[in-house]
């Protein structure tokens, strides 16, 4: 059973805190900018010829993917913070279904992530990318789907941890590999075969690929048809959210 009041209030809480915390907003926007202009800008001088476009332009969809990855996962990992500092108990003793809590948390992560992504997306004219209103809408729709998928994955991760002590483990073994093995920074087909297999089970790969379709067009750098990207994201979102709901329901 999914209760609208629970979902509403969880999303409203997260949104209110997000708007209130200016330093969080700024720091989450600075990360993609550093990658885009400092890493991308520097690398442009080395790798431009092979891609047929500037490296900065090439990684722009990947940077949007990164924004979504970090902001969705961190938003879900706030569950660990809530568990450690008690707020989660208030939610768990309320007469609400665990599944509503999971959906509410996943949608909070989605909302915050999409807001940040849209802000970064608006940089497209500076990178020589042409987008009409329709393609902006497509890009936002993909951002919503990918954010929901990653947020649900984040909730699954959060159910396994009760404290932030393991944060660096999550960072180094899950988040960073997901980012680098997604085709965000370099074409997937340039990777060694073993790593290519990993990119295929990484949902972020499909999100970044879909964004490449919309932002860069069919310039020969996409890996899958867009239908595949969207289907994989949709199916994995459903699987993740169901798994998160199941894991959340467990009682000791």
């Amino acid at each position: 059973m999914v209760e609208a009041n629970v979902i509403y209030v969880l999303v409203a809480r997260e949104f209110k805190k997000f708007v209130r915390d200016k330093s969080r907003l700024i720091s989450t926007l600075v990360r993609p900018l550093i990658w885009l202009f400092l890493v991308g800008g520097g690398m442009s001088r080395l790798v431009t010829p092979e891609l047929g476009m500037s490296y900065m332009k090439f990684i722009f969809p990947g940077i949007l993917g990164m924004t979504i990855l970090f902001s969705s996962i961190f938003s879900s990992l706030s569950i660990i913070w809530d568990k450690e500092f008690g707020m989660m108990k208030e939610i768990l003793v309320a007469p609400v279904s665990r599944f509503s809590v999971v959906i509410g948390k996943a949608l909070s992560g989605t909302l915050i992530s999409v807001i940040q992504t849209v802000i970064i997306l608006m940089l497209f004219p500076f990178l020589g990318i042409k987008m009409g209103l329709l393609s902006i809408c497509y890009a936002v729709a993909i951002a919503v789907l990918l954010s929901f998928c990653i947020s649900s994955l984040g909730i699954i991760i959060a159910t396994f941890y009760d404290s932030f002590e393991s944060f660096s483990v999550i960072m180094n073994f899950i988040i960073m590999p997901m980012f680098f093995l997604s085709g965000a920074m370099y074409p997937v087909n340039k990777l060694p075969h073993v790593l290519q297999v990993i990119t295929r089970i990484n949902p972020l790969t499909y999100g970044v690929d879909a964004l490449k379709h919309v932002l860069l067009g069919d310039s020969g750098i996409v890996d899958f048809p867009i239908v595949t990207d969207i289907s994989v994201l949709a199916v994995s979102s459903l699987l993740f959210v169901a798994a998160a709901g199941f894991l959340f329901e467990r009682k000791k």
Partner: peptide, 10 residues
């Protein structure tokens, strides 16, 4: 509860 379960940022 023994430990506070309020949201301090609200």
């Amino acid at each position: 509860f023994q430990d506070t379960t309020l949201d301090k940022d609200l």
